[in-house]
Computed example of a mutant assay.
Amino acid sequence: MDYLTGFQRDLLYVIAGVDQPSGQDVMEEIEGYYTTEINHGRLYPNLDTLVNKELVEKGQLDRRTNYYAITDAGLEEIKDRQEWESQYIKT
């Protein structure tokens, strides 16, 4: 996951936690965490990057709305990241 930006990583986590969210759903979730406004020009190119890296798949809900779903490769990246983080974070 070291080849993703922090923002892309956060998008991956959001998509993994919501069942087939639309881009708008992802935006609402991520804006709840970030203190700055997230615009379409930032969101959608980063979602496309995750799709191109095959960490997320993109489908159509209707003619105007796409959904995003985590792939097995995306879940594996998240698990690997959590294992790496756990060696440094002691609870």
Rank of each mutant, 00 (worst) to 15 (best):
S22N: 09
T65Q: 07
D19G: 04
F7M: 05
M27T: 07
E37Y: 11
E77Q: 01
F7P: 03
I70E: 03
I30K: 10
Y88C: 06
E83C: 04
R9P: 00
L47W: 02
G74R: 04
E29M: 06
Y68I: 12
G32H: 04
M1A: 10
G32C: 08
R63F: 14
D80H: 09
E54I: 13
T36A: 11
V56Y: 01
V51R: 12
L12P: 02
R63E: 15
P45A: 08
D10M: 12
Y33S: 13
D62F: 08
L47N: 04
G74P: 05
Q24G: 13
Y44H: 10
E76C: 10
K90C: 05
A16E: 15
A73Q: 11
D2A: 09
T5R: 08
Q60I: 06
Q20V: 01
L75G: 11
F7A: 01
V56C: 07
V56D: 05
Y13A: 14
A73R: 06
V18W: 12
I30P: 01
V26W: 12
G74K: 05
I38C: 09
K53M: 15
G17K: 12
S22W: 05
Q60V: 07
V56P: 07
L43R: 02
N46D: 06
D19F: 12
E83N: 01
H40F: 08
Y68N: 06
Y44D: 03
K58A: 12
D2S: 00
S86H: 04
N66H: 14
L11Q: 05
R9N: 01
E31A: 11
M27G: 03
Q8L: 08
M27P: 05
Y34Q: 10
G74H: 07
E31P: 00
G6C: 02
L75P: 00
D48G: 04
L61E: 03
Q82A: 11
L43P: 06
